Amino acid sequence: MRDHDKSPRNIGPNTQLVRAGYDPFEYHGFINPPTVHASTVLFPDAGTMEQHGQQYTYATRGTPTTDALCDAINELEGAAGTILLPSGLAAVTVPLLAYLAKGDHALIVDSVYGNVRHFCDTMLARFGVEVDYYDPSIGAAIEELFKPNTRLVHTEAPGSNTFEIQDIPAITSVAHRHRAVVTMDNTWATPLYFRPLDFGVDISIQASTKYPAGHADILMGTVSANESHWRRLKQANGQLGLCGTPDDAYQVLRGLRTMGVRLERHQRSALALAEWLQEQPDVARVLHPALPSFPGHDIWKRDFKGASGVFSLVLKGSRKDDFKMKAQAFLDGLSLFGLGYSWGGFQSLALHVELDDRRILEAPSEGPVVRLQIGLEDVADLKADLERGFQAIAGIQ
């Protein structure tokens, strides 16, 4: 009889994705875990109920399905524990609530996802938390921004929409000297291309809506903590009563199995298009960390194992008043690229990004910024579609 308890060591990332989080022989050999729909869990006797003396007590605290996904993410992240949340935004805001209190000070990267900035400027402000924004290129010089009450540093690399790379090891080293927690939104790279906890980050955040789910039909976020910060994160999550559903957890776990091969395709196609776009006369700049011309490329090459399928281009503009009109003409000229928010799914998407909320960084001045999510279509077809967008711009000049 085969020994199913022995797992090979030193396996590759795609092999790990296929195996992580669930042993089929724990449930009759079925290759996927059962989807356990539950709220109430029964106890065999009053004593067990009083002591919470069994693995499952109530569905907000976990089910076999959600645990299978958490176990897989723990393995990929190298984490002590993971919580599931209903969205990627919640995956950022719950750690902020977990580790910050009235009178605390937080440092938030200025290239942060816009809805996180809104949360910091409204909800955290109402709770009495002071927030300052910092330049993503600051590196070890972030020490100058620390105050006696600085308790948390939030990082996001690459940055939302403009894709700045941060020197994460330098920032975590400073933060830990000041006993501050470091959180990181690692949605762009996933743990396959960057493992935050290996670089000193305490809390690794992913919008599972994106590459883990991979099909534009699930909302979920994961938050993974190292050993010293896991207990507080888990407690805060329980107090807030937020959880991922078994159906969504099942879908994300299924998406994980193919995430590696999908990311390889996203990466290859996106880089080919980014290199091509650099040569187009209507393009002022391409914002992609894997391009040697991009500021921060050396740090990306040092720390990251790969790139995903999302980047931006800066169209050549004339007057700033015309930027929006030019971006809209370009987008309306596209047919294969869908016009929609989010990314990480199979279809290519395009979006005109507004950067007026930046505090430190200035938006590119050459023209409007268009973010592209490169899906699984053929590169030649996407090039032809982008050319249609450039032709639409020519029609308004």
Rank of each mutant, 00 (worst) to 15 (best):
D5Y: 13
P34V: 00
V41M: 07
Q51F: 08
Q54Y: 03
P64N: 03
D67Y: 02
I83K: 08
P86A: 06
A90W: 03
L100S: 05
L107Y: 04
V112F: 04
L124R: 10
V129Q: 10
D135N: 15
I138V: 15
A140Y: 05
E143L: 07
P148L: 08
E156I: 11
G159I: 00
T162Q: 11
D167N: 15
P169W: 03
P169T: 02
T172A: 12
A175Y: 05
H176E: 08
A180Y: 04
V182K: 09
T187G: 09
P191H: 03
I203N: 07
I203W: 03
I203P: 07
S208A: 15
K210V: 09
H215Y: 10
M220T: 04
A225E: 02
H229Q: 05
W230H: 14
R231I: 06
K234W: 09
G238K: 07
L242A: 05
C243L: 04
P246K: 05
G255Q: 03
V261Y: 13
Q267A: 15
A270R: 09
R285N: 12
P295L: 03
G296I: 00
G309V: 10
R319C: 03
D322K: 09
Q328S: 14
G344K: 11
I360N: 12
D381E: 15
L386M: 12
Q391R: 15
Q391E: 15
